[in-house]
Design a binder for these strands. Structure first.
Lengths: 376, 376
DNA sequence: CCACTTAAGCAACGCTGTTGCCAAAGTGCA
DNA sequence: TGCACTTTGGCAACAGCGTTGCTTAAGTGG
């Protein structure tokens, strides 16, 4: 309770219409190629069948939806199945990692229709990186001619940054990026809408969209262990970023007050403990440390699921999933919970961040709205 | 991004109307006795002045709003000021603590118009407690005759519990409460609407409503240190409870992996470290430990403000505020933040929880909707 | 006294989802 | 094959929302 769940502004008929339209589009999307009938849409939205008929008629007119066969009859006229037309729109997801660039072109369903990878040096200077990234995007788009309109480019990169302003802060190891307005620069260069976010948030968003069960307001954490350790938090169905896009600072959670000194200046951060264990080949120890911090997070936020990703995890996937899961099991059992929170490797793999970045633009179409500080 | 910010259901004209009405009511409430003019309402809501005129006309007809003088002219007809009529509705807030009961009667603005306190033994058995609480509520209501309609009773008590189902879990120290459907029992007994929540969540809600600046989607944490340690989290303007009302489990955050054994079975929980320090008279030490855990929370969630409450804090308010603030300052400086997150004692004092409990019912009137798993 | 400015309501309007009704398209039994 | 029945889905009329255009109320300032 508390919080108008978002909308802090008045709603007129136009807003009402686009809300309901987005809602229907979202149901069409989650229904996938199997499609969904008008009456099911009416049930799920709570709108009258007639209202759904009107909305879907508009969508078909706009080319966003199409009829796709019919269901078996249950004694009367069989239901007509509708589906989303994936080609009606496209978005680019751009993942700028420390040493590599990944760009994907996604259709409306979020499926990747084209992909490019290239080496990248984030330290090469802003102009060089922007120009290189812009060219990659252009060749990606040129390579695959599209009928549907382009929605823009979503950029995901290591934080800290301000996603609302589209400005980078002191990217660890690359001080020259501090204050660079990447979003606006790239938007001018490519002449499209550009949205920016932290890589961990993009990954979490990608998972949230991909997993139908995770959409109804569930909470999960995406923990990314690569050269550093960070988290993307989805709380109550939406990515929680905080007012300064600072949420998800998971690596420097202190779990051992008198532990070893971390480069951040604190003692006993998860990151330093975890990476030290990995460094000496003690993967199980690293997993246990990660598990302890994850258990804190799960308890604090009542998380439904923990997803692990990142290169270090990928290198020892089973060991990490098992190790983290064991700690969570132990803590859950002690707390008297019915069942422990499930842990698994994040789907999507190395491409997951780029796909999530594309969702930064696809999301709003389906009512998954950008919420700089509170959302719609 | 991701998450439709709440509404996962279709919106028709009725819903639109009540949304806008609630929005206007909320602005009237936050404006306080000073009131607000129609044109200001139009600006803040984004609606046309004419729409605001219609909405406020309805509210005045329903007795919820009234004209209250006029502003100074700026060269033309002066603006008419509108204000909320506090007496138009009332809600009861009931705080069941381990050894004491507090019941308050609040008007629409959340102001306390009547209050009762009584000793309570949570271990006396469910029926005894329910009957005692019901009688307190009845005498509270009988003592102050009300014109406006009663909205119901909000109950706040120590967790764990399920606020959506209105059922208690294993309340620490009182196993007989496990599974007791307190909300429904009390609702039948009193024949009113009853809403239930954890005491920490109620306290956080109370603060969120009271502080105007905290409403626009800000995030803050209410840390309660009494016989135990818990937290109420307001993220992006709404109380975050999690699917099982488990969020806010702050006391058993592990911050010292090899620390002393806690009664929960883990080692190095904040609670055991903090209470041990308090026990040996080391308030500063307790504050530092609390600060370390608070700093973790602030970093993880990008919290805007930390509020401290509870008996133990109240006994050494300055020391705790200073000690926690010092740790947060230190961590913020190391992280290179512009300014540290402010820390202060929670307003409302001992009555804060009961007032927040009343807000469980007042909130929905103003569009601060219950969100079992996602909200409006 | 008069021109001007600002606030607020009335009336007509466009658009939303809703309601009432009917045509279309099946099933199942005689 | 025919007919009664069920279910789907669109057409038409409708109520209600906020919006637009205009008028009236109520001030200021020269």
């Amino acid at each position: 309770m508390a919080g108008r769940g978002g909308v802090s502004t008045g709603v007129n008929l136009g807003a009402l219409r686009s809300h309901n339209t987005a809602l229907v589009l979202d149901l069409l999307r989650t229904a996938g190629p199997a499609g969904i009938s008008r009456l099911e849409l009416a049930e799920r939205t709570g709108l009258t069948p007639q209202a759904v008929s009107k909305i879907t008629a508009r969508l078909r007119l706009d080319g966003l939806a199409a009829e796709a066969g019919r269901r078996a009859s249950t004694g009367g006229k069989p239901r007509t199945v509708l589906r989303l037309v994936p080609e009606a729109g496209h978005a680019v997801g751009l993942h700028l990692d420390r040493d590599e660039l990944t760009a994907v072109l996604c259709d409306l369903t979020g499926a990747v229709v084209a992909e490019r990878r290239a080496p990248l040096d984030l330290g090469a200077g802003a102009e060089t990186v922007v120009e290189g990234a812009a060219r990659e995007v252009e060749t990606l788009l040129a390579g695959s001619l599209k009928a549907g309109r382009g929605l823009g480019v979503g950029v995901a990169l290591p934080g800290p940054l301000d996603h609302a302003a589209g400005v980078l802060h002191r990217v660890t190891g690359f001080p020259e990026w501090n204050g660079f307005p990447l979003r606006d620069v790239l938007a001018r260069r490519l002449d499209t809408a550009v949205v920016m976010d932290k890589d961990t948030n993009a990954a979490a968003l990608g998972v949230a969209v991909r997993e139908p069960h995770a959409q109804t307001g569930a909470s999960f954490a995406y923990l990314h262990l690569g050269t550093g350790l960070g988290a993307g938090l989805v709380l109550g169905g939406s990515v929680h970023r905080g007012a300064r896009t600072g949420a998800g600072e998971f690596g420097h959670q202190v779990i051992q007050l008198d532990g070893p000194l971390c480069e951040c200046g604190n003692r006993g951060c998860v990151e330093v403990l975890c990476l030290a264990a990995v460094g000496r080949g003690d993967v199980d120890g690293a997993a246990r440390v990660l598990g302890a911090a994850a258990a804190n997070l799960v308890a604090l936020l009542d998380i439904d699921e923990v997803l692990l990703g990142g290169r270090t995890v990928a290198a020892h996937e089973e060991a990490f999933v098992r190790g983290v899961g064991a700690v969570l099991d132990e803590r859950a059992r002690r707390a008297g919970a019915d069942r422990a929170v499930p842990v698994r490797a994040a789907p999507g793999g190395a491409r997951g961040v780029a796909e999530g970045a594309a969702q930064l633009l696809l999301g709003p179409l389906f009512g998954l709205v950008a919420r700089p500080m509170g959302g719609i």
